[in-house]
């Protein structure tokens, strides 16, 4: 955590160590082996795309790296220091945030209440010690976070349910950015969006990368990946099978890597 400031000015170059690295991650659900020694790494100031076919283990890997699941085997390093997460809160404490595909927002509450979900700001003094919320400060800080990422919400004082889909997603993304100090995972951020909103979200992802955070993009949409990623990691059958810089890569290359030119008929969850 001590070198967070250093990372803000970090420019991507190959000699810098990864901010997040995972080695040999394995995870089984009963008889289903979702991950079989998967590796992963992400660097600050880069967008790392994590791609793979259905059942390749993408979401399992992300859930392990964000503290939702515990791995059966493997090691996770943040800035070279070994860590272990037994809860999402532990991952949060290490500066890792996730934008979930379902957005993980409470529709009935205001944008500010969502931004500070589980990390509510309390009033100073005795009232704060009694658990009283500082709603004004949370609203102010939320709005500043939106403005920093050039996200304009039409209404700060309405339930998130009454915002548009794109704006709801902006709330979820800005929340992660406000708290992330190391890595932001984005699980299919454009899956539910139209063309215009997708463009805006990709812009937002670039702006986040430029703040010096490592962005990990999980996507099925190869065009999005090629547009925004700096590095692409490919998962297949629970293992990383490729890590390539996004230079002259085509959709065909990625699809070929994902499906596996050699053993194309292997199924989800098959044991070796």
């Amino acid at each position: 955590m001590g070198n967070a400031a250093e990372n803000l000015t970090h420019t991507p170059d190959d000699s810098a160590g990864p901010i997040l690295e995972a080695r040999g991650i394995s995870k089984s659900f009963g008889h289903v082996e979702a991950l079989r020694g998967a590796d992963f790494s992400a660097r600050a100031g880069e967008v790392t795309a994590l791609i793979g076919d259905n059942g390749a283990g993408k979401s399992t890997l992300v859930k392990i790296l964000s503290g939702v699941y515990k791995a059966n085997a493997g090691e996770i390093f943040i800035r070279g220091r070994k860590v272990s997460f037994d809860s999402p809160a532990a991952a949060h404490a290490a500066g890792i945030e996730t934008v979930y595909q379902d957005l993980s927002v409470a529709q009935d509450l205001s944008p500010a209440a969502n931004m500070f979900m589980g990390r509510e700001k309390l009033l100073p003094g005795l009232l704060g010690r009694l658990g009283f919320l500082d709603n004004a400060a949370m609203r102010r800080e939320s709005l500043l976070a939106f403005q920093r990422l050039k996200v304009s919400l039409k209404d700060m004082d309405t339930p998130v349910a009454s915002l548009s889909g794109g704006q709801r997603q902006s709330v979820a993304i800005c929340r992660s950015i406000m708290w992330a100090r190391s890595v932001v995972f984005m699980d299919e951020p454009t899956a539910a969006l139209g063309v215009v909103q997708t463009g805006r979200t990709l812009d937002l992802i670039r702006r986040i990368r430029d703040t010096g955070i490592a962005v990990v993009l999980i996507s099925h949409n190869m065009r999005d990946v090629i547009q925004v990623a700096d590095v692409i990691e490919v998962l297949r059958l629970g293992r990383r099978i490729a890590r390539m810089p996004n230079k002259g890569v085509t959709v065909q290359d990625l699809v070929g890597a994902m499906t596996g030119a050699l053993d194309a008929e292997t199924e989800e969850g098959a044991t070796p």
């Binding site: 379902d102 993980s104 009935d108 509450l109 979900m117 589980g118």
Partner: peptide, 15 residues
């Protein structure tokens, strides 16, 4: 309110 509105999100948020 958060738990009633979205229990899974609340859990992910460390509540």
């Amino acid at each position: 309110f958060l738990i009633g509105s979205n229990p899974e999100a609340s859990r992910r948020a460390g509540i």
